[in-house]
Design a protein around this nucleic acid. Structure first.
Length: 815
DNA sequence: GTAAATCTCTTTTTT
DNA sequence: AGAGATTTAC
């Protein structure tokens, strides 16, 4: 047997050695060694002879980090196997994300793809700025506006159209196709309404129901006209955005996939050459690919049956739907139908059986239509003693204390801090848990989250700095105008910009926003309220500009804070938020003092460097090597930890309720708009009284479904999968906690409740915080020494006795 | 009685 | 902004 196959279990070995000329789909559950299978198959291809070089194997991953890891592991194995990889392996191998591989390919074939060889790739920030400019031009040039279209309507949709465009592009739908497709789909939808209205006559209905349905039909007809307008506008903006990209010789992320796709589709010879070059294709995290990526994969494959393609994925871990990933891609890769095989990996090397059982228990609570939801089997078997603990805390402060106490206990038992992770649904909730850990002197580090430089208060203050060093920095100027104390609204700015456009129209030259501001003061058409704001702003700015060179950077920042009364606005937030923001502002001062004596301009350059490179400056000073990690579940994907804490499992936090998009597109409904211009829900979004059975039956009979309903269901399922990902990170132990109070009218914590009430093997405790005297104290930090002792006692029971000291009852969970 | 309007509470993930 | 519960309108 080949050496690299040693140590693989039979199912892994089967996957690695499965014939290379047949399609293969590996359904690999969490912790089943999927990356190992993929890298070993890569080695297997090289070792099988055939004289294949690394440049003949295309290996696609989801992140650059995963690609780097894979490269490292392959190089390692090759060295051990004494397979010569050549000195240029890292440069020649095609191991990377879809985006990075397409980028490289397009550089090689820029001319053939009709691109400038010096094309640039726009990241999200740059593409958004370009799009914004396109929208502004559209707003000022009325020619493209449909008759009757109210321009102010568009402001509501600006962001949504941008997301819509990205969503379409991720499905390879570009302007030419978009308008036609969406119109057809829309017409089909309204045809169904027509049928419903026709069918009403033959139905036995309550007169009131009939009347309502007739009215809704009429409403739907009106709404279809509104949709028509928006289709026209979105299509115009879409084309204009693409043209602007072309003019800038730029591609955005989606374009990288699209241009590669188009090049291979249209250039037959090159397509052939490419299919020859990539003798084998491996794709990791297939459940996170989008439609465009799948389509490209079909083109890259040797034949329609994907004979030289191996994909690895797990539907249960699909958590990137919001980035247009299609979980359906896994099912649609029909390896068996195409003469290949589906291999399932069920042996989990990470966790004890109890943890896998819990994950399975939770997963089966949602009606997923998954190809493979069979349970995982723990290689490590069933652990002695309980492995899953639930705690229902009386409030968030107590929750933090329970977790901190439990972690302290683990550390006392000899665990290392780096073996422990706190996983959050949203990184913005890190603060309470950080506070609890800090209180006990437990070292921690918070990864990711919203980067320091992306924080509102930091961006505001930096904007002021930028405006003062360069008043002609329009972006900074706009940000500063919108910040305290002026709070210019979008509408205010629109009026100022109109003035700018008009000046440019007269002089024919570009006029800077800053120069316009003075004009605003004397312009009769500008409302007094706006004029006042600008007046305040200019006085403020001029005062600061004078001070600029007279003091140190930190003193100057202090002046900005004082003169804008910025802290007053900070203090208007809830206490948690105030503390966080103040902490950030303090940190800005300490960063500034580090480069002090230095100029504001230097500091800005420094800050830009960090934010442009997405180098995250954490909100908390980390620096511990051996520290408890706090991160989001998304960031934890692919990682594992001995002990996992999963706090804040409230009804609103996990699963989280996301707002519905104002605009969306789907193949069966066409363009979906949330509200019509009167503020009513669009029929397509949510048919009236859809939640009532008699209406729903009629709607469904005529094929009128509720986008809202479907969206909600899909959202919940993605949250369920995210929860599954969180649970399956744990190797040794899992601690789930949920703070009270529950909002009066909520149904209680959804996922937590299911386990609390339905999963017998878990330990369950209820916090017993004694109500302190009511006051204005901060509930997060204000604990009394006596209480800590009490937590400790509760916790000892939890950890040592290992028996259920409490069972669920209605007393603690609202019905 | 049902349907619509109002009130109340909470509030994301990132290559 | 969404989702229940509650109130108001018909």
């Amino acid at each position: 047997m080949n050496r690299y196959l040693k140590g693989l279990n039979p199912e892994q070995r089967q996957a690695v050695t499965y014939p290379l000329d047949k399609p293969l789909k590996v359904l690999a559950g969490a912790g089943t060694g999927k990356t190992r299978v993929l890298t070993t198959r890569y080695i297997h291809i090289l070792a099988q002879g055939g004289n294949w070089a690394p440049e003949n194997i295309l290996a696609l991953t989801f992140t650059n980090k995963a690609a780097a890891e894979m490269k490292e592991r392959i190089v390692d194995s090759c060295r051990r196997m004494r397979i010569a990889t050549g000195p240029l392996f890292l440069q020649e191998s095609w191991i990377g994300t879809f985006h990075s591989c397409c980028h490289r390919f397009l550089r090689e074939h820029a001319l053939g793809a009709g691109l400038d060889p010096e094309f640039t790739v726009y990241d999200e920030a740059r593409s958004w700025l370009l799009y914004r400019r396109v929208v502004d031009e559209f707003l000022s040039a009325k020619g493209a506006v449909p008759e009757g279209f109210v321009l102010t309507d568009l402001n509501f949709y600006v962001k949504d159209v941008y997301f819509l465009i990205n969503r379409l592009k991720d499905s390879l739908i570009y302007p030419d196709d978009y308008q036609q497709m969406v119109r057809e789909e829309n017409n089909k939808y309204y045809d169904r309404w027509g049928e419903l209205l026709m069918g009403l006559g033959d139905m036995e209905l309550h007169p009131a129901t009939r009347k309502v349905l007739m009215e809704r039909g009429e409403e739907a007809r009106e709404q279809s006209a509104w949709e028509g307008d928006l289709i026209q506008v979105t299509n115009f903006l879409f084309s204009a955005y693409q043209e602007a990209l072309a003019a800038a010789r730029a591609l955005d992320f989606a374009d990288l996939i699209y241009y590669t796709y188009r090049l291979l589709r249209d250039n037959v010879a090159l397509g052939e050459e490419c299919r020859h070059r990539f003798a084998y294709i491996l794709v990791d995290e297939f459940q996170d690919t989008n439609r465009a990526q799948f389509a490209l994969l079909r083109l890259l494959a040797r034949d329609e049956k994907m004979s030289n393609v191996t994909v690895v994925g797990d539907e249960r871990q699909a958590i990137y739907g919001w980035r247009n990933a299609r979980i359906e891609n896994v099912r649609e890769f029909a390896a068996r139908e195409w003469g290949g095989e589906e291999i399932r990996l069920h042996t989990n090397y990470r966790s004890y059986q109890q943890i896998l059982d819990l994950a399975q228990f939770s997963m089966e609570k949602s009606p997923h239509l998954l190809q493979d939801n069979s349970p995982l089997r723990a290689q490590r078997g069933v652990a002695p003693g309980p492995r899953i603990s639930l705690a229902l805390a009386q409030d968030r402060g107590e929750e933090g204390n329970i977790i901190a106490a439990a972690i302290g206990e683990l550390l006392k038992q000899g665990m290392r801090a780096e073996d422990i992770v706190i996983l959050l649904r949203s990184p913005r909730w890190a603060q309470p848990y950080e506070g609890a850990l800090r209180l006990r002197g437990i070292p921690f580090q918070t990864v990711g989250g919203v980067g320091f430089y992306d924080r509102e208060e930091i961006k505001d203050l930096l904007a002021y700095l930028r405006v003062i060093t360069n008043p002609y920095d329009d972006l900074a100027l706009v940000r500063a105008l919108m910040a305290p104390p002026c709070f210019c609204s979008d509408a205010d700015l629109a009026q100022i910009c109109q003035l700018q456009k008009r000046r440019e129209g007269i002089g024919g030259e570009e006029v800077h926003l800053y120069d316009i501001l003075r004009g605003v003061l004397v312009e009769p058409e500008i409302p007094p309220a706006v004029r006042k704001k600008v007046e305040v702003f200019l006085a403020l700015g001029e005062g600061l500009i004078e001070l600029q060179d007279k003091m140190s950077l930190t003193d100057f920042l202090n002046q900005i804070l004082q003169r804008t009364a910025y802290l007053n606005y900070v203090y208007a937030n809830p206490p948690d938020e105030v503390r966080r923001r103040i902490g950030n502002i303090k940190k800005l001062f300490s960063l500034a003092s580090q480069i002090d004596p230095g100029t504001a301009a230097e500091f800005i350059r420094y800050a830009e460097f960090f934010s442009e490179n997405d180098l995250r400056e954490g909100e908390e000073a980390a620096g511990y090597r051996d520290a408890v990690t706090i991160m989001s579940v998304h960031q934890a994907k692919g990682l594992e930890f001995p002990y996992v804490f999963l706090p804040n499992l409230t009804d609103t936090n996990f699963p989280v309720r996301a707002p519905y998009p104002n605009l969306d597109y789907s193949e069966d409904l066409g363009l979906i708009i949330k509200k019509d211009r009167l503020g009513r829900d669009m029929a397509k979004f949510a048919p009236h009284n859809y939640d009532k059975e008699n209406y729903r039956d009629i709607y469904n009979h005529f094929g009128i479904i509720s986008y809202k309903d479907r969206q909600r269901e899909e959202q919940l399922q993605e949250e369920r999968r995210l929860f599954y990902v969180a649970l399956t990170r744990a190797q040794e132990g899992l601690y789930l906690t949920c703070p009270k109070p529950f909002p009066k009218r909520s149904r209680g914590p959804h996922f937590f409740r299911e386990i609390w009430e339905g999963y017998e093997p878990a330990e369950k405790i209820v916090g017993q915080k004694v109500q302190g005297p009511a006051g204005d104290e901060d509930p997060l930090l204000d604990w009394k020494p006596g209480e800590l002792q009490q937590y400790h006692e509760v916790l000892s029971k939890w950890l040592e006795l290992g028996k259920r000291i409490f069972t669920a009852s209605d007393k603690f969970l609202p019905k």
